[in-house]
Computed example of a mutant assay.
Amino acid sequence: MRLGVFPLPLILLPGGKTRLRIFEPRYIRLVKQAVTGEGFALSSYLPEAENNSSELAAWVEIVDFSILEDGLLSIDVQAQSMVKLTQFELENDGLRFASAKQVKHWASQTSSDKTKLLAQSLSRFFSKIPEYESLYPSPKYDEPAWVCARLVELLPLSIERKLQFAQPESFERCVNFLHTVINGEKNSDLFQFQTRNYN
């Protein structure tokens, strides 16, 4: 399939949501097409990469939208799966399109002592970040893959590091990494959410 591509300095994993404010004409066009089509690919912006985009991206659908007081369009998107992007094309207005093929991410996982502790940490983070918590009215704290994916999205890590956990066989490595980082971090103020404004 062919999807519009929106490269942003973030990563979204399956089940993840984010809120975007849209004002640049090319991305307004992308949103209009996504509403009536198959969604779009939210990739990670990599300034040194060809097309400034990661090859792995989240295939997202728009789940909510509104017009803000300042006239900007606000959309909530949710990642349905990961896709691999190839054959990029740049249209006249600067909007990118690419061929997208679905790829597997993490399989369903069984809870362990480590993932239960991580779920407790995520719940505490959500309680401190109401803007982020509001995106997830029914959090899946009993699903280890969902919990770990949300923590990866929240952690203040480089995009390159986060992309390591977009790989399909990275779950156990991710759990160990998160467990070490969060248990060794005394101050959860690192986990801050701001409404994202991208053009």
Rank of each mutant, 00 (worst) to 15 (best):
D76S: 11
S81N: 05
L85D: 04
T86H: 01
T86R: 06
L90P: 00
G94Q: 02
L95D: 03
S99Q: 13
A100N: 08
K101L: 10
K101F: 04
V103N: 01
K104W: 07
H105N: 04
A107E: 14
A107F: 00
Q109P: 09
S112I: 05
D113K: 14
K114Q: 13
K114A: 14
T115R: 07
K116E: 15
L118K: 04
L118H: 08
A119K: 12
A119V: 14
L122G: 12
F125R: 13
F126Q: 07
F126R: 06
F126Y: 15
I129G: 03
P130W: 12
S134I: 07
Y136A: 03
S138K: 13
P139Q: 04
K140Q: 14
K140W: 04
Y141H: 10
Y141N: 03
P144M: 06
P144F: 04
A145D: 13
W146G: 06
C148F: 09
C148Y: 10
L151W: 05
V152A: 05
V152R: 00
E153Y: 11
E153F: 11
L154E: 05
L155H: 06
P156H: 11
L157F: 12
S158I: 11
E160T: 10
E160V: 10
R161M: 13
Q164C: 04
Q164N: 10
A166G: 15
Q167L: 14
P168C: 07
E169L: 02
E169A: 06
